[in-house]
Design a protein around this nucleic acid. Structure first.
Length: 468
RNA sequence: GGCGACAUAGCCAAGUGGUAAGGCAGAGGACUGCAAAUCCUCCAUCCCCGGUUCGAAUCCGGGUGUCGCCUCCA
């Protein structure tokens, strides 16, 4: 069995064959750091982080690179609006980005290059393109000459004529063709600029990823990923650049995450429905947001609404609850074993296989979740019906949950937090009342705790609590 | 105009030729002092019309609908 990946370049599922296994180079287009990230951005970062974790689980050694775009038109405009320098703006929103994705349990990339720290590499790349005849200078700007690259359009699966038919021509263009794109822009008054062979200026948008991935890796990238809207022109242009400079492909596998819509509508500033991660975290548990993001296949469009977050929370709680049941059962488990264990053991083995099958198939997290829920039912059933429990078996199941949580990270496996003394005392008083059959008092205390967000569950082994 | 994706129960969502996973919500039952959690049972023939096939949600053709890209939006 091998991992299969849907490659946007070929529009088909391909067996994953990295250039130098088990090493895998994985580049994700990171944020332009001019604002807080929204939930659509978050989908990309969560989903590809999960894919990276799965590849690690499958024995690959993934080098994960994610850039920060810290210089472009949006950066400059926003910095001017706010009266700060582009650098200050970048620092501020890089920090915000890292806080936001950390809350969503996205692990940091291994390498986090910034465009502004790779100007020499960018200039070198542009020089190569000029020398190789893939670029031209026009009035101080440098442009990529798309007519020199017949394969231009391969990623978008469009030929140049069709692209031209839909292209918008803006007045005052200095390009030879509407499809050409800027590699280096000459300085305008008040803009950050770097010295170059073509005078003071700054890089175009698409050039940085080509330059930085080339700088950090000698070989072709195994995986290059981003949001679906980057397919054209961003990734198309990156491919053209790397080919023009190095006569080699930029990446073997191109992965693109589907859009996230808000209430069936595209998220956009004009509709005023942009939901920042920062705001959402004020109302929702980050793990519930993760569950929602992983509940559909990463390439499918995904809708976002408060109702769906609530559904996600209910589903996620079933997982969390199962682990709580498991941990409780483990406390009273014994070493003896019997044949009651056979069903659960068989289900565990089957689950392990089906989980890998699902994830191997282009990272089908929705299918994988279904597989996990099947195990949850089997586990709950065992716990309900089969005491005394087999310690070894329960620990194996727990170990499996640890492994998949290392990938999905949807539940807390850590030992539960302590409750403050006052609440702890209320629980004790309620237990006493119950023992004395004073149910009116017991129920009153339970309601009081509920009002404070604490839900009680009476089990055969005692009362336990959880947050609502 | 060019290119592409999608259409599965009230909601979400798997399933690429063999007779519809899973989750949420809902109904009934068990357990519980009552709850909660849990378990059991119930809840779809897959947008429409043709075709291929012994057999199609899955393949082909034609519709309808939704969405997207072709504008430095993840």
């Amino acid at each position: 069995m091998a991992v299969k990946i849907y490659n946007t370049l070929s529009r088909s599922r391909e067996e994953f064959k990295p250039g130098d296994p088990p090493e895998v180079s994985f580049y994700v287009c990171g944020p332009t750091v001019y604002d807080y990230i929204h939930i659509g951005n978050a989908r990309v970062f969560v989903v590809f982080d999960v894919i990276r974790r799965y590849l690690n689980y499958r024995g690959y050694r993934v080098k994960y690179i994610q850039n920060y775009t810290d210089i472009d038109d949006k950066m400059i405009n926003r910095a001017n609006e706010q009266g700060v320098s582009v650098n200050e703006l970048a620092d501020r929103f890089i920090k915000a980005y890292e806080e936001d994705v950390a809350a969503l349990r996205v692990r940091p990339a291994d390498v986090k290059p910034k465009a502004t720290e790779h100007i020499p590499q960018i200039i070198e790349l542009v020089e190569k393109l000029l020398a190789n005849g893939y670029a031209y200078i026009s009035d101080g700007d440098v442009y990529y000459d798309t007519s020199s690259y017949p394969q231009y359009g391969q990623l978008a699966h469009q030929n140049q004529d069709d692209l031209l038919a839909g292209a918008r021509v803006e007045p005052g263009e200095k390009k030879k063709s509407p499809l050409d794109f800027v590699l280096w822009k000459q300085k305008k008054e008040g803009e950050p600029a770097w010295q170059s062979p073509w005078g003071e200026g700054r890089p175009g948008w698409h050039i940085e990823c080509s330059a930085m991935s080339g700088h950090y890796l000698d070989d072709i990238l195994d995986i290059h990923a981003g949001g679906a809207d980057l397919i054209f022109p961003h990734h198309e242009n990156e491919i053209a650049q790397t080919w023009g400079a190095e006569q080699k492909p930029l990446a073997r596998y191109w992965l693109h995450a589907g859009y996230l819509n808000i209430e069936e509508q595209k998220m956009s500033k004009s509709l005023g429905n942009v939901l920042t991660v920062r705001n959402l975290l004020e109302e929702h548990d980050p793990l519930d947001l993760r569950f929602l993001l992983l509940s559909a296949h990463y390439r499918s469009p995904l809708n976002f609404s408060a109702e769906l977050v609530a559904q996600s929370r209910s589903g996620r709680m079933r997982l969390q609850e199962a682990v709580t049941n498991l941990l409780d059962a483990t406390k009273v488990a014994v070493d003896a074993s019997g044949d009651k264990e056979e069903k659960l053991r068989a289900d565990l083995e089957e689950t392990k296989e089906r989980f890998v099958e699902a994830m191997d198939d282009d990272f089908n997290t929705a299918d994988a979740l279904g597989v996990i829920f099947d195990l949850v039912r089997s586990l709950n059933k065992y716990i309900k019906e089969a005491p005394p429990y087999n310690r070894l078996l329960l620990e194996e199941v727990l170990q499996f949950f640890r492994e998949i949580n290392e990938i999905f990270e949807l539940i807390d496996l850590a030992s539960p937090e302590a409750l403050d003394d006052e609440l702890e005392d209320m629980i004790k008083r309620r237990e006493k009342a119950r023992a004395e059959k004073d149910f009116a008092t017991a129920d009153q205390i339970r309601d009081d705790l509920l009002a404070r967000g604490i839900v009680l569950e009476d089990t055969p082994h005692g009362t336990r609590w959880k947050r609502k």
